[in-house]
């Protein structure tokens, strides 16, 4: 029995969901950002997660089924710019248009709730693992 593997997997899930939440928050915070260190307006970012095999020498039967999760890459959406007519804006061009990040707040909020629910699911799984380990220790009493 090796429940620490379960704890590790839970941890990887928590980290992944938290990273996703970070990205969503960054997108939400920068809905109106027109200036970035790289130049130009802020571009919407998305995160891609990947499954990873776990090094566990004890269980050969379930080796293929048990996967932890890792952050594969954070992609920047190059097309996520919309032109908004606002001549009074300091970054407006000669015609009065400003390049703004094209971020859909509703979609971001939905993503945020999904990530937060998935985080909660991981917390429940972690709790369950902890409870099982404690129960096993109780057996000897």
């Amino acid at each position: 029995m090796d429940l620490t593997t379960s704890l590790k997997i839970c941890g990887s899930g928590l980290a992944a969901q938290r990273a996703k939440l970070d990205i969503v928050t960054s997108n939400l915070a920068n809905v109106n950002t027109t200036r970035t260190p790289e130049g130009g307006p802020y571009r919407k970012k998305t995160i891609a997660l990947a499954a990873e095999t776990v090094a566990d020498n004890f269980d050969s039967t379930i080796k293929e089924a048990v996967r932890s999760v890792k952050i594969d890459e954070v992609k920047e959406d190059a097309n996520s710019i919309k032109m908004v007519y606002d001549p009074s804006h300091p970054d407006a061009d000669a015609k009065g248009y400003v390049a703004m990040p094209n971020i859909n707040i509703m979609a971001e909020m939905a993503d945020m709730i999904t990530a937060s629910r998935a985080y909660e699911a991981c917390v429940t799984a972690f709790d369950s693992t902890k409870n099982m380990t404690l129960k096993t220790l109780e057996m000897g009493r």
Binding site: T5, S6, C10, A50, V54
Partner: peptide, 25 residues
């Protein structure tokens, strides 16, 4: 039970992973 727990936990952790297929024992 401990094997199954590990598999279920892995399924939950990979809820957002593209192309991940859940398993059961």
């Amino acid at each position: 039970r401990s094997k199954r727990h590990k598999i279920i936990v892995s399924n939950i952790a990979n809820i957002d992973t593209e192309d991940f297929k859940p398993s059961d024992i």
